[in-house]
Design a protein around this nucleic acid. Sequence first.
DNA 1: GAATCTTTGTGAATTTCTTGACAAACTCGC
DNA 2: GCGAGTTTGTCAAGAAATTCACAAAGATTC
Lengths: 211, 211
Amino acid sequence: MQKTSISESVIRRLPRYYRFLSALERIGQERISSKELASQLGLTASQIRQDLNCFGEFGQQGYGYNISALRKQLKIIIGLEKKRSAIIVGAGNLGKVIAANIDFESFGFCLSGIFDIDHEICGKEIAGFTVKHMSELLSFCQREKPFVAVLCIPQEAAQETADTLIALGIKGFWNFSHCDLNADPEITQVENVHLGDSLMMLSYRVTKNNK
Amino acid sequence: MQKTSISESVIRRLPRYYRFLSALERIGQERISSKELASQLGLTASQIRQDLNCFGEFGQQGYGYNISALRKQLKIIIGLEKKRSAIIVGAGNLGKVIAANIDFESFGFCLSGIFDIDHEICGKEIAGFTVKHMSELLSFCQREKPFVAVLCIPQEAAQETADTLIALGIKGFWNFSHCDLNADPEITQVENVHLGDSLMMLSYRVTKNNK
DNA sequence: GAATCTTTGTGAATTTCTTGACAAACTCGC
DNA sequence: GCGAGTTTGTCAAGAAATTCACAAAGATTC
């Protein structure tokens, strides 16, 4: 299906396509051409066709793309039809908000546990889960085999915790810990979220625009 | 100072450089070569030198870069020494966490107000601010001239609210509203944060890696 | 202070990404 | 069911980003 190794640039655009097609499907639209899609997303038609063709031929000449069929394909490509077990490590402010507000099911995961090192927090209930202590990680992982971990811990602890989790079989990290994790990309995938970086980019742009 | 228009790819790397140099400064390191920096960041030395040279000549042959001097320059380039007024619009779960956990001062901004449309929420105190009702936006903006707005509202309301804020003089958006805002890039800067997209990219990668 | 070593800044080469162009294939209206 | 109109998939051209390579300049050693 996949023609050759997919570039980062293409991968970054996939969620946007998926999101947009979902919105179109919701309002009941049936078909769309690459040209129309491009104009709505601010891209070129050529780029969209090129991107989609990395994964297969989903369109039809003279017709365009069937929105719900294409969305379904993208869903499979991105892996969203899976329900991979995810745990949250670190139940501070951020951990809590993520537990309560991210609909993991929509993104190919299913939340299966929340852990923290602080005994004060353990035992409390968050988003329907009782927070467990980190010392229970080993037995939990052996039993439940979680696939990914959401790291919401201080950066000092992040790499060490990540290494432990990798040893316990974790295959991916959604990392909110203000640092860039090291992990063998053949084995473990890392998606770093740096809100600070994002805010700095905004700062750069408004600065540049208002010199 | 700036040689030519800076590409997106370079801009995306700037915060990472800044973050890393800050960490080096904190542990008391004085100098670093592009080679060493590259190996620690997983980039090439050439790329780092090329990137930095977009903004000036900060290094010295045979020595490398002085960490605290370079950090200071980056701070200016990114605009972090400014203290631009920022407001949060939408004081739900996400708005609250951002208000409480983002150190705006470190990123070139200074939080000056929090707004919500829900009368239940207005009047409550968050991060030292009393939440104001949206109807007070006009007079607040005329008085305080906030520079950027953090949008933490449902996507249905996002574009309309953004348009209102642009009319009130807002020059940048840090947009958490699950949609891509439209705005004239000559006037208004938009930094969209899509946690869902980020999680989808993780899903894609772990899927691909475990077929 | 001379010789060697290190490292920058930069022009050119290379690689990657995006856009343009068009034949082939399908749709749609009559 | 025919002809005009659309739109795809793809190859090639063009643009952009990254890497290479090296002269020039300062650091370091003896």
